[in-house]
Design a protein around this nucleic acid. Sequence first.
DNA 1: TTGTATGCGTTATCAC
DNA 2: GTGATAACGCATACAA
Lengths: 347, 347
Amino acid sequence: MQEKRKTIYDLAEELGVSIAAISRAFDPDSKLSKEKRELILATAKKYGYTPNRMASRLSMNEIKIGVLNLSYIKVYYSEIIDGIRDAYANLKDYKIDCDMRVLQRGENSLDEALTILDEFLAAHYDGVIICGVYEDCVIPKIDSLIDAGIQVATVQYDLGHSKRTFSCLSNYNVIGEMAAQLCGMLLRDVKNRKTVMFTGNKVSPTHKTLIEAFRNGAKKYNVDIVAVYDTKDDPECAREMVTRAFEEYPDIAAIYASSANSLPICQYLENIKHGKDIAFVASDVFPDLHPYIENGYIDATIYQEPYKMGYNAFDKLFHSIADNKPTSGAVMSTPRVVMSSNLHYYK
Amino acid sequence: MQEKRKTIYDLAEELGVSIAAISRAFDPDSKLSKEKRELILATAKKYGYTPNRMASRLSMNEIKIGVLNLSYIKVYYSEIIDGIRDAYANLKDYKIDCDMRVLQRGENSLDEALTILDEFLAAHYDGVIICGVYEDCVIPKIDSLIDAGIQVATVQYDLGHSKRTFSCLSNYNVIGEMAAQLCGMLLRDVKNRKTVMFTGNKVSPTHKTLIEAFRNGAKKYNVDIVAVYDTKDDPECAREMVTRAFEEYPDIAAIYASSANSLPICQYLENIKHGKDIAFVASDVFPDLHPYIENGYIDATIYQEPYKMGYNAFDKLFHSIADNKPTSGAVMSTPRVVMSSNLHYYK
DNA sequence: TTGTATGCGTTATCAC
DNA sequence: GTGATAACGCATACAA
């Protein structure tokens, strides 16, 4: 029930300037005398005028975004990619062109990845999304993209010591504490509080943070961590580690698996008689895990919503480029607790 | 890296028809010979052409949406309104006009509400959102809006026996089961499983469903419900009910509060010596509750994300009207488990 | 039923 | 630095 929206013409008439001047006032890189710009912006604010984003995108050049994905754990990264793809689809009317490069980690995949970034740089893209790369060698590449005026968003890893524009990831400090609290809840009135953690790859920044956070949480929520096992993100290794854990601590009361290595643990628990009596907090949600959540081997799992991370990265990068609405720092997505009673939503 | 997007001109040239014909082909209400329409739609699909939504909205009439909010619990409904407001702000470039009417429940608020719906009808709005009304008398109003070609979305209550286009609400069946599972987790190795539930207003459809779902969950997760108390959504009444509950069952092991009546319960627990030993699952998250979540009187709370419900309702209604992408049925939002370790995100 | 011409609110390009 | 004007991709009133 408000007044009709002002247009660029109204404002131009009001101020006795050309519509071009109004348009330029909103583009910081555009040439316009300081006084005129200030006057225009001031009266624009007064009338609540903002350029119509549809009309402006319609008359603007195409935006080119390059996406580089170096998959680590396939099922997890494919969700990120899905999110990116959907964000792209939703924004396709805004004249965007998206160049997606999806690689699997392997022999020379890292070199390939770096080469792709060179291509993005050479092609003068407007924005780049880098997903699943945490190695130091990528940092100078990112910095040269930024120096060339290309915005860079990273997904899953932060790379905070590079010049990246922003990054989308989970708050691993919170996840670790949540895991500890859930273990604490499950051991609420139990005397034996011996807990072991199975982590992905101890050297990756993610898992370092997770271990630290789980330790902190353990203090708060009275959980007794007796050991942390590195599964090297390898199912076979995870299998060995579970066996070893139960050899070393036959009376484990609770388990936290911080990576997509939960499956071998489920299978181990299935084969011992008191498997269901052990509290088990897992990570992520994927089809193979569903039955174990449903039948109670997994009491709860912490889901990072990789889809949303991907979606967010693309969406925010676009708006940062197109609307001059910059995003910066780390965009943390909210981890969710999934149990059998709400698994339904995550299938 | 794909081909340049086809425009309406490309398609018109390709088929030797006017651009008007192409445009009309995508509007079912538009006059166009059957064969021509089919040919156009077929080749459009072949080339992956869809009308550019920005360009089309730019040349179309304003869409008018009316919002009626009848607040029940203020802090909760204001979040819904925030969601609606933000969705509106994000879509404002699409030529939308939104008429917001926010009422507090009181003496004649229901009559006022119905009058407002009459106004919306008379003004020939394109869409209407109704929020917080569950009384039967609203159903004929909704139906006449629909009959006039106005799309109607309801929020928080479904009103499935009206002709409403769709509704955004929480899945109360899931929430009830989650509450039961959380109680079950907290009582994992405890013999005394006596649990009481405090519900909002037993006559409202929401709470009926919640009670039923909690009962079902209790069977699954081995929780022993000894009583259900109706607090009539009134803090004073809630206070009396807690007192009574503890008189009738002095050894309560767990509590589930299904409405915004958790605060009096927290205060009661604070004043008895074994308050923290009682498992307590609450509902929603609002500032007054924060300290009780942090200091452990509340073990977990189930958050319905009213903001998202509001946002969704507006967003989906708009797309249903503008893009001819209809939404129907009940859009269930995902309830979240909030504990002290992740409360941070919900402050 | 079909096509033409105009407008939607901007930015880019080219003059000045 | 500043202002005309041609796009941008589409819907629609109007004419045929």
